[in-house]
């Protein structure tokens, strides 16, 4: 451990590598978390199939790129549209029936969905680990000490762009306003003539499309396999819980922050603590929140 810290102090360039990688990895996780925050905030559905949506997006990108020879990055809009349709269908078939039920019903339903999706992906694409290739190689900096896949920078840019687009959409479009109104008070929104069922369907489909987009990037940056969705689900929950529901800029910040912390803990403490640290951070945030809330007497005892 001290040896690792010494390395960082003696050659600060390695810090640049850790920070850049952390930001880019964080950006990928941010997207799925972003979608989760949306669904959670608007519909109060905790979507446990979040990671499976990501993996499915990844497989679609991989499959389209493989069969048509397209660059996987260019499949992103196609995948987003396909996943939007898929999300809408899942809403109509399933989520509509659990959206106003209690917490456990929606948890169970989406957990079931996750299992069905894993098996379906396994049947459709097989259990092998797959990757999609962006094919542009790495960007080398600081005399080769820092070398990062070009696609990671694209992912970072996309994440920021997409986040901006969603925020603008929420603020300025009719649908966005309706979504916000529904999340504030679904009953009042209905009284005002908003078709909340459509709003829910749209929100869920939008989440699915965002996850699909994240999946395209995951296939190019990490690896995909039908059962690897869990990592993304867990990470989304950690990020959203740490940021607080309904705090969309907070989601991005906490995703990027956790990405960087993860890289540092992996480097200093060792790889086995890389993921553990993320969960410890969540714990600390929750303890801090509880403490803050107790000071203004809002804590639930």
């Amino acid at each position: 451990m001290w040896g690792s810290i010494e390395v960082l102090l003696s050659l600060p360039a390695y810090n640049v590598g850790l920070i850049l990688n952390g930001l880019c990895v964080g950006a990928v996780f941010a997207l799925a978390a972003y979608g989760l925050a949306l669904v959670w905030g608007v519909m109060n559905v905790k979507n446990l199939a979040q990671g499976e949506f990501v993996i499915m997006g990844g497989y679609l990108a991989w499959y389209i790129a493989k069969t048509t020879g397209m660059n996987p990055l260019l499949t992103l809009p196609i995948v987003a549209v396909l996943m939007f349709v898929f999300g809408w269908a899942i809403y109509v078939l399933m989520i509509r029936r659990v959206v106003d039920k209690d917490l456990f019903t929606s948890l169970l339903a989406t957990f079931g969905l996750a299992i069905v999706m894993q098996q379906a992906l396994n049947l459709a694409f097989g259990p092998e680990v797959q990757v999609a290739q962006f094919g542009r190689g790495s960007v080398s900096m600081m005399g080769g000490i820092v070398s990062i896949l070009e696609i990671k920078f694209w992912a970072f840019g996309m994440c920021i762009l997409l986040a901006g687009a969603v925020v603008a959409f929420m603020k300025f479009s009719r649908m966005g306003q309706a979504i916000r109104a529904t999340s504030q008070d679904a009953r009042a929104a209905r009284v005002m003539g908003i078709n909340t069922d459509r709003v829910y369907a749209f929100t869920y489909a939008l989440n699915s499309a965002i996850c699909g987009a994240a999946g395209v990037l995951v296939a190019m940056i990490m690896v995909i396999q039908p059962y690897y969705g869990v990592t993304h689900s867990v990470r989304s929950f950690v990020i959203v819980t740490a940021a607080g529901i309904g705090n969309l800029p907070g989601v991005i910040m906490s995703a990027l922050g956790l990405g960087v912390i993860e890289q540092y803990s992996g480097f200093v403490l060792g790889a086995e603590f890389q993921v553990a640290t993320v969960v410890v951070m969540l714990l600390l945030v929750l303890i801090w929140r509880q403490y803050q809330a107790s000071r203004i007497r809002q804590v639930v005892r």
Binding site: L18, T231, Y264, A271
Partner: peptide
Amino acid sequence: ENLPRDLSDMTPT
């Protein structure tokens, strides 16, 4: 290093 089972990123290592 001990890589955790759900690790998808080895860059720090």
